[in-house]
């Protein structure tokens, strides 16, 4: 029981990270109907930016942990947003309205570019850092097994919930969110109604990238080690999460992320670590067989 509780805590933490990345996939899909394959790599870039910021801040002699974390988060999210904006501008905008597979290939090209760019500029070796917030709370101690809730996990869950709260407010309550939602069902119609769709799409990428950078920051804190390849794996998982939740649905992305995190953690704990990804992917396939548009996706009704 205690063991399961521990896995639940770990799974939720991991799921939060996936969920944040998945939101970026689902937002972009919702608005322009494309799989932004480079999104996982923007997450990776965000993670590297966090690492650079943390190292830079410590070199500058800033020792206050909360201050350093806040500055790092701002720095990483801001610059990752710039990456998101640039990727859209360079690789996707010229292909808007064109043939469906061209943006997909362009996105795959961008993903390869970002991955190899970081490998070339920062080196292929893994980057380990020391734990920034060590320690935690001992929830239950049965004698042979102690359930730990680390400060780091608390921080991740709190930060994710705060960011998601902020984001929900942004999408539902602000004029920006309204234009985004207006673009979602019909981009052409929105532009006829006088919405600057290019700007809205840019903003979608900017917000998605910032969220991915937050996830990248937390990934760095949680695992304490990153490399240029983390973007692909996390990206595929997060994309799986978005599809599992029903692509296009924002709550679906978070739920999907949590599910993937939990499946992975529990499978690793009770069955085998090696096949944790197989478990996650298999569940995706099974869910899609029975619910072809994911858990919260709108059913597509073919009008004839």
């Amino acid at each position: 029981m205690a063991y399961a509780l521990q896995q639940l805590i770990n799974g939720v933490t991991l799921g939060m990270i996936y969920g944040l990345i998945a939101v970026g996939y689902t937002m972009v899909y919702g608005i322009i109907g494309m799989i932004n394959f480079a999104h996982g790599d923007v997450f990776m870039v965000g993670s590297f930016l966090s690492l650079i910021a943390l190292l830079g801040l410590s070199a500058l002699g800033i020792t206050s942990v909360p201050l350093a974390l806040a500055l790092t988060l701002l720095f990483a999210a801001g610059l990752a947003a710039l990456y998101g904006w640039t990727v859209e501008r360079v690789a996707y905008r010229p292909l808007r309205g064109s043939f469906r597979l061209a943006p997909l290939i362009s996105a795959i090209g961008m993903s390869i570019t970002l991955q190899n760019f970081v490998q070339v500029s920062q080196g292929a070796r893994v980057k380990p850092i020391e734990a920034i917030i060590p320690g935690g709370i001992r929830l239950i101690d049965t004698g042979d097994f102690a359930v730990q809730l680390s400060w780091m996990q608390i921080a991740i869950i709190v930060i994710t919930l705060t960011i998601l709260g902020l984001f929900t407010w942004l999408v539902t309550k602000t004029p920006l969110g309204r234009t985004m939602r207006a673009c979602e069902p019909d981009l052409k119609m929105a532009s006829l109604l006088g919405i600057d769709t290019d700007r809205t799409i840019s903003l979608t990428f900017v917000i998605g990238a910032a969220l991915a950078a937050v996830a990248g920051f937390m990934f760095l804190l949680y695992y304490g080690v990153i490399d240029f390849y983390i973007g692909f794996i996390a990206g595929v998982k997060a994309f799986t999460a978005a599809v599992l939740g029903g692509i296009g649905s924002l709550p679906g992305a978070v739920i999907g992320g949590l599910l993937i995190g939990l499946i992975e953690t529990f499978w690793s704990a009770y069955f085998s670590v090696e096949y944790k990804d197989v478990a996650a992917f298999s569940i995706l396939i099974v869910v899609l067989i029975f619910m072809p548009t994911g858990l919260l996706g709108r059913a597509e009704v073919e009008k004839v």
């Binding site: 899909y29 799989i35 692509i247 090696e274 990804d277 995706l284 072809p292």
Partner: peptide
Amino acid sequence: PVLRLRGDYLAIVTLAFGEIIRIVLIN
């Protein structure tokens, strides 16, 4: 089972399948 899925759902399922095969080959 999966060919009735549309577009991008099919894309992720095939991608997932590719990864499953690779992981199985490794393990």
